[in-house]
């Protein structure tokens, strides 16, 4: 077996990459967002994305989710604008800080 696979020309290997499906690709898209992929996987991913518009949409969706999450994490995110400490809790914290002093 090792002899056979060694005999595969690089053309044959590239042809194999043609066979990479959407199902194989989606986890790689997510994985590449978290860490670098080995060259082989990265090339297969690029290759598939080059021909598959649907997976490109999926990739963009994940990028949008990442952008939304970063925005949500900012100091004054446009969410929970009304959320705040109740007067009761504020008083409790002030007391705790006062005891500390």
């Amino acid at each position: 077996m090792s002899k056979n696979s060694k005999d595969l020309s690089w053309m044959a290997r590239i042809t194999r990459w043609f066979g990479v499906t959407c199902e194989d690709t989606t986890p790689l898209i997510s994985e590449l967002m978290d860490h670098n992929l080995p060259l082989g996987k990265r090339l297969r991913l690029k290759f598939h994305l080059g021909m598959c518009g649907v997976c490109r949409i999926y990739e963009k969706q994940l990028e949008i989710i990442r952008a939304l999450a970063r925005k949500l994490g900012e100091d004054d995110a446009p969410t929970q604008k009304d959320a705040g400490l109740s007067e009761q809790v504020k008083a409790r914290i002030k007391t705790a800080l006062g005891d500390q002093n």
């Binding site: 994490g73 100091d75 929970q80 959320a83 705040g84 504020k90 002030k94 800080l97």
Partner: peptide, 17 residues
């Protein structure tokens, strides 16, 4: 005391996310 008034809600919202 001022910290609580000035930053309390801000810190709380940040934490709640």
């Amino acid at each position: 005391d001022l910290w609580v008034e000035q930053y309390g809600d801000m810190l709380y919202r940040y934490t709640l996310v």
